[in-house]
Design a protein around this nucleic acid. Sequence first.
DNA 1: CGCAATTATGTTGTGCGCAATATAATTTTA
DNA 2: TAAAATTATATTGCGCACAACATAATTGCG
Lengths: 144, 144
Amino acid sequence: MTQDPLSLDNQLCFAIYSASHAFTKAYRPLLTELGLTYPQYLVMLVLWEKRAASVTEIGAALGLDTGTLSPLLKRLEKTGYIRRERSREDERQVMIALTTPGMTLKVRAQEVLKSIGQAIGCDLEQMRTLMDGLRRVRRNLEEA
Amino acid sequence: MTQDPLSLDNQLCFAIYSASHAFTKAYRPLLTELGLTYPQYLVMLVLWEKRAASVTEIGAALGLDTGTLSPLLKRLEKTGYIRRERSREDERQVMIALTTPGMTLKVRAQEVLKSIGQAIGCDLEQMRTLMDGLRRVRRNLEEA
DNA sequence: CGCAATTATGTTGTGCGCAATATAATTTTA
DNA sequence: TAAAATTATATTGCGCACAACATAATTGCG
């Protein structure tokens, strides 16, 4: 650690980058069972929480732009978990709503979460400090 | 926090996912100056440390497969930072070596790192516990 | 009111990430 | 040693991520 500041082992960015990939790799086989990719799962998390939302609202929650969301939502619609319909009050907006299969999928997602929780062997206390640290880093990077 | 276990705010995976994106977003303008993308920068970190390596060695260090690395390395070669040449001992291997521009680029990368360090406002102690936590999570996920 | 800015979404192009597959060189083994 | 298995790299195809640009609806300002 007193080595080169540019060594891979010293990079917080890489620790986060590789942990993120480890997570999606762990989720992938479980989510494939549900017919979801990891980013699609994130969108479903938003919708299970909000019931319905515009594309922009989903994007704000996840930090994604329409270039990513627009085709992703089309795929989710094709799978049958969401409906996309133009808002009548504001014809620019496309409201995204869960279908019945999309709503009932939540039960199976809870099982997925349970599996992942076991895998990371979550000490609640450590996990909280970890999440606090990550949010602090994220906030600082976004403000800078 | 006593809410739905599936709420976005409770997801460690999303805290990591969004922190990772915040990092690449912070790095992007700085790395663009150097003619690098973030994953290309990671490859350069490996090469600055090892001087030269096979495709597989780089992949092992970063957790990437040849499907990702093969085209990425071609782009790095085109930019002029690396050379790709078949090993004579083992004709299957392609050895990746830094060019002179690739080597001298390290000096400018040190400046980039300094900027990022200021942005995250790194308390060394907090940063270490953060990295320890991330490595623990990653290890657990990969073992499971 | 009418036109200029803004807002919401979509499209295109580039690069990453990975599964699946292909190919060629090397090693193992029968 | 010849055939089978393994290893190293490359290619294809799909989905995400994002910049840049396009379009249509709404808002605001003169």
